[in-house]
């Protein structure tokens, strides 16, 4: 099983402007000159925020297996690049099955669908799974006038909407999939994917109130022994419990604690705050790794990564 992150930014897509990019290039060039020696080696040795970028696409994550069908979590703006990659791999004349699992239908999680080219191509089958009654309505509405010029009926692929029930287990695309309910405006749903002894959990747009043990136990049960968990770490704990309480998102500290309790192997920080620069996300990652050390106790180390657009993790 392999996880491919196509969009990792929260709430709205972001991009660097010319000044941001110039600052980044300038800092990298100066650091490489100062290091001397092989410039490629010096570049590779720079911190990630100097040599790369976390990217700015909104939520879209692919779970690859050796099966022929696509498994995709959310249709944020990252879905556009996923689609281009799929077409480059198969060509437009080779029909595919795309299984999409929606955490919820807020705009940043569906905005990539109008640009998801496989939806335009006859022969493709697109099954959009989710637990919300409004699932189909939300996808159709964003293509209606005056929001978009291509109505849903114009799409050439066979598009099906599949209503799921939380806590029920389904077999889709060769994986066992279990949705579970999360706290977010209008509800959101996480998904636990299992195949061949490997487990990946997608849990975004989820607030954790920390009010009772029952809530903690519920998430620990769904995260239990996962190889990787993608977790909404948008805010600091202070923001998540004060100014941004009830905004439906969580923190890096709660992510670490829940993953430690559930004996998760890798935490993938996800749904990054759109105002954060690459350097700020690097800083949050360093702090999160330090908190993992502080809070580990006698448990096994939890590997912590900050997901970025283009990251691939082999489980």
């Amino acid at each position: 099983m392999r996880i491919r992150f196509w969009g990792t930014r929260g709430s709205i897509p972001t991009s660097m402007n010319a000044d941001h990019l110039r600052d980044k290039i300038g800092a990298a060039v100066r650091a490489v000159i100062e290091a001397g020696g092989d410039p490629d080696a010096a570049l590779d040795a720079l911190p990630f925020h100097m040599r790369g970028t976390y990217g700015g696409e909104s939520s879209c994550v692919q779970i690859e297996t050796d099966g022929p069908e696509y498994i995709i979590c959310d249709m944020g703006s990252g879905a556009r690049r996923l689609a281009l990659n799929a077409l480059g791999k198969h060509g437009p004349g080779a029909p595919q099955v795309y299984n999409i699992f929606q955490s919820h239908v807020h705009w940043d999680h569906i905005m990539g669908f109008p640009f998801f080219i496989p939806a335009f191509i006859p022969g493709n089958v697109i099954r959009i799974h989710g637990c919300h009654d409004e699932l189909e309505m939300a996808f159709r509405r964003q293509q209606d006038n005056p929001s978009f010029p291509v109505p849903f009926e114009f799409l050439g692929a066979t598009i099906e909407f599949v209503k799921l029930e939380p806590e029920q287990t389904y077999q889709v695309g060769g994986l066992t999939v279990t949705p579970f309910r999360q706290l977010h405006a209008g509800d959101s749903y996480g998904y636990r994917f299992e195949k061949g002894g490997k487990v990946a959990v997608y849990s975004t747009d989820s607030e954790h109130k920390l009010e009772d043990q029952e809530e903690t136990d519920y998430f620990v049960r769904h995260f239990r022994d996962a190889d990787a968990v993608g977790f909404d770490t948008m805010y600091s704990l202070a923001d998540a419990t004060s100014l941004k309480e009830d905004w439906g998102h969580s923190s890096n500290m709660v992510a670490v604690e829940l993953c430690q309790m559930a004996a998760v192997k890798t935490l993938c920080m996800f749904h990054h705050e759109p105002v954060y620069s690459d350097a700020q996300i690097d800083q949050v990652l360093a702090e999160t790794r330090r908190f993992e050390e502080i809070s580990r106790g006698d448990g096994l180390p939890l590997h912590v990564v900050a997901s970025y657009d283009g990251l691939e993790i082999e489980l």
Partner: peptide, 8 residues
């Protein structure tokens, strides 16, 4: 350190 990481 925990206060700093949490921004408390």
């Amino acid at each position: 350190e925990v206060f700093s990481i949490s921004h408390f």
